[in-house]
């Protein structure tokens, strides 16, 4: 009986902390992300309280302005056009990886805004596709040279948090095989040949995040709130870590005391320490705040 290559709780105990397991297991540090692993990762948090009306319907113009402001600040360029031309070239074939979860999907106006900016940057309409569960069968995704990753932040039954990192689980044919240990191995998906190195931009939608889930559907409107934000970064780990801090702070405020996300979203730290996809620690994140400052939870 082989006793090798099985990771157990004992390994975590020996390492002294669960979150650093990967780095102690001799696993390779990953490549393939534009995230700045040597220095800090830039993350833009942009908020506009008028992006949602009283019925939480999206103001498209305000949302486009948020996206424009975020990418401009992220890439430190004078205008959104310059930013998008830095992100993609006319020869790119771009897959926009969305999320179709019915209770909290990627907002269609945001998909449309991204598509519009890609076309303005010279990408052919026929070379752009937005998809979620069909990415492995989508001909544009199959030929893609670039990916834009966009999804709402929410709590999640298996991974603790539904994150940008988690959003790529549809790039594997059997997603459930990544559910063990709170989906800690999600970072491995980002190393697959058809994914690795393609992601140009990550947009974590924080318009009405879900901070607590329950029941078979894992959703209740009363556990969302109009945060009216987007978190934008080239580093998915830094963006997710920033979003996770906001979710945790909101939970603590709502429940009147510390109430940890369950299960712990350890895939975020593992994506940093085990898979080398980006920076999860706040001191390694250069956070730029734009727009509405009230109740930022950061």
């Amino acid at each position: 009986m082989s006793v090798k290559n099985i990771i157990t709780r004992r390994d975590f105990l020996r390492a002294g902390a669960c979150i650093t397991l990967g780095s102690f297991m001799g696993l390779p540090q990953g490549e393939g992300s534009p995230a700045n692993r040597e220095g800090k990762s830039r993350v833009v948090l942009v908020r506009d309280k008028d992006v949602l009306d009283s019925k939480e319907q999206i103001n498209r113009i305000a949302l486009e302005e948020m996206l424009d402001g975020a990418v401009t600040a992220l890439l430190d360029v004078p205008d959104p056009s310059s930013a998008w031309r830095r992100l993609v070239t006319p020869s790119d074939i771009v897959g926009i990886k969305t999320n179709v979860w019915p209770y909290l999907p990627t907002p269609p106006p945001l998909n449309e805004a991204i598509r519009k900016r890609l076309v303005e940057a010279g990408v052919g309409e026929e070379n752009i596709s937005a998809d979620d569960r069909g990415v492995l069968r989508d001909p544009v995704f199959q030929r893609s040279t670039a990916l834009i990753n966009v999804r709402p932040m929410r709590t999640h039954h298996w991974s603790g948090l539904g994150t940008l990192l988690k959003n790529y689980i549809m790039f594997v044919p059997h997603p459930s095989r990544y559910h063990d240990n709170a989906c800690e191995r999600l970072g491995a998906i980002w190393q697959l040949p058809h994914v690795k190195g393609k992601t140009r931009l990550n947009i974590l939608v924080m318009l009405t995040p879900l901070f607590h889930g329950m029941g078979p559907h894992h959703f209740s409107r009363q556990h969302t709130w109009p945060y009216c934000g987007l978190i934008v970064s080239q580093d998915p780990v830094a963006a997710d870590a920033t979003g996770a801090r906001i979710i945790q702070a909101r939970r603590d405020a709502f429940f009147g005391g510390e109430r940890q996300v369950t299960p712990s979203p350890r895939h975020i730290v593992a994506a940093d320490t085990r898979f080398g996809l980006g920076n999860s620690r706040p001191e390694r994140i250069d956070l730029i705040r734009l727009g509405w400052q009230e109740d930022q939870y950061l």
């Binding site: 979860w101 039954h157 298996w158 997603p175 459930s176 559910h179 078979p216 559907h217 894992h218």
Partner: peptide, 9 residues
Amino acid sequence: YIDGAGEVY
């Protein structure tokens, strides 16, 4: 119907 939580059932 219920996404990933279906695995529980």
